[in-house]
Design a protein around this nucleic acid. Structure first.
Length: 139
DNA sequence: GCCAACGTTGGC
DNA sequence: GCCAACGTTGGC
């Protein structure tokens, strides 16, 4: 049985934890999520899933692609047992970062959760949106 | 279980 | 630094 891969978008403030920090670490733990919708997305992730790494606040753009290496692990920063984390490793940087501005004006991407649920730190990306953004990054 | 107050996220 | 959106908390 072939597993169907899912696609995600994960936001990080680069002055707290940037793409370069993830690259420097080699593999990182995505923890500290305290929002149920975002947590449910973390729990739905499977090893091998791919995620856009997005820089919020500074940059405001998709910078690279990470691969989920472990999912549904306990959040090491949480004492209550309610929250989950995942592990991920950097796969590659986009040839060209794709900005929120570009995403906003692109009709193909109008229904992205990044736009419709803009405060959500971990959102789903559907395969069409994923491919479209990869194309934008090649321009 | 409703809803007002409050806190947080994140773009600008 | 402001503020809109919206999730969470807590009184009733």
């Amino acid at each position: 049985m072939t597993k169907i891969k899912s696609f995600w978008l994960m936001k990080s403030e680069p002055d707290v934890y940037s793409w370069d920090d993830l690259v420097a670490e080699g593999e990182g733990t995505w923890d500290g999520v305290r929002n149920y919708t975002a947590r449910n997305n973390l729990r739905a992730m499977e090893p091998g899933d791919l995620a856009f790494f997005y820089h919020s606040n500074i940059g405001i753009e998709i910078i690279g692609i990470a691969e989920i290496t472990a999912s549904n692990i306990p959040d090491p920063t949480d004492q209550t047992g309610r929250w989950s984390a995942v592990r991920l490793k950097p796969l590659r940087k986009l040839k060209r970062a794709v900005t929120l501005k570009e995403i906003k004006v692109d009709p193909e991407l109008a229904s992205m959760e990044l736009l419709t649920k803009f405060r959500l730190s971990v959102s789903r990306v559907n395969p069409d949106e994923w491919d479209h953004i990869l194309k934008l990054a090649e321009r």
